[in-house]
């Protein structure tokens, strides 16, 4: 009977990885849409939010059913516990991607200020972190999670540097206020996605080792 559950858990993991891929792609596309001022791409990202919400719901339902029917314990239980939290975090990443896409549409008419150069870099770093956390989940391998604390620190300092530079621009010329406010908000979204990547990493660590850690 345990084998049936194991198979179902493998499928559940695949579902989560699918959702993760979707979230990551949404984030990448949203920032790309922002940089390239591509309204169509932005609209596609916004549409995909529905898909990711549906995945959240379906995976949760499946996981809860497994608990009711199979009373999982030990490793099986920890995987399901990780899954239930991860889908929440990934759904949030998807929502932030949608919000960034909406911002992209708002900023599509006017040219960008130079600060945008930092946002794509920050986005790449965040995407790397989420991808590594998902790989760690897929392969049940802790090595992907080393340095997460330092990487999170890097994301935080990137946010603050964008924040300060935008302040400078806003003080220089009031016409920059709208633009720079949007940049700060987008950077803020990316920083939150980085936090979620850390939370996912914490859950994966618990899944593999049974120990709860905190990444700060």
């Amino acid at each position: 009977m345990g084998e049936i559950l194991i198979e179902k858990i493998e499928n559940l993991k695949l579902n989560v990885l699918e959702m993760g891929e979707l979230a990551v792609n949404m984030l990448k596309d949203a920032v790309l849409a922002l940089k390239a001022q591509d309204i169509n791409l932005a609209k596609e990202v916004i549409k995909k939010k529905e898909d990711i919400a549906k995945m959240d719901e379906q995976i949760e339902e499946r996981a809860l059913r497994m608990i009711a029917l199979y009373h999982p314990v030990a490793r099986d239980m920890r995987v399901i516990a990780a899954v239930l939290k991860m889908i929440t975090y990934l759904a949030r990443v998807g929502r932030y991607a949608k919000d960034i896409a909406k911002t992209a549409i708002l900023m599509a008419d006017e040219p960008h200020a130079s600060k945008l150069v930092e946002i794509p870099y920050m986005s790449d770093k965040v995407v790397e972190m989420i991808t590594d956390a998902l790989n760690s989940f897929k392969k049940e391998d802790l090595s992907y999670l080393t340095n997460f604390s330092e990487r999170d620190d890097e994301i935080d300092s990137l946010y603050y540097s964008i924040f300060r530079e935008c302040l400078t621009y806003m003080m220089e010329d009031p016409k920059n206020i709208t633009k720079c406010t949007h940049y700060i908000i987008v950077a803020r979204y990316l920083e939150r996605c980085g936090d979620h990547a850390c939370k996912i990493a914490e859950k994966v660590h618990y899944m593999i080792t049974g120990e709860r850690i905190e990444i700060k």
């Binding site: 345990g2 084998e3 559950l5 194991i6 314990v73 030990a74 099986d76 920890r78 049974g210």
Partner: peptide
């Protein structure tokens, strides 16, 4: 033991495999 068994055999036993 049921949340995080230390030994592989225990893990397999409680999970029914």
């Amino acid at each position: 033991i049921f949340e995080n068994p230390q030994h592989e055999l225990t893990d397999r036993y409680v999970r029914g495999i």
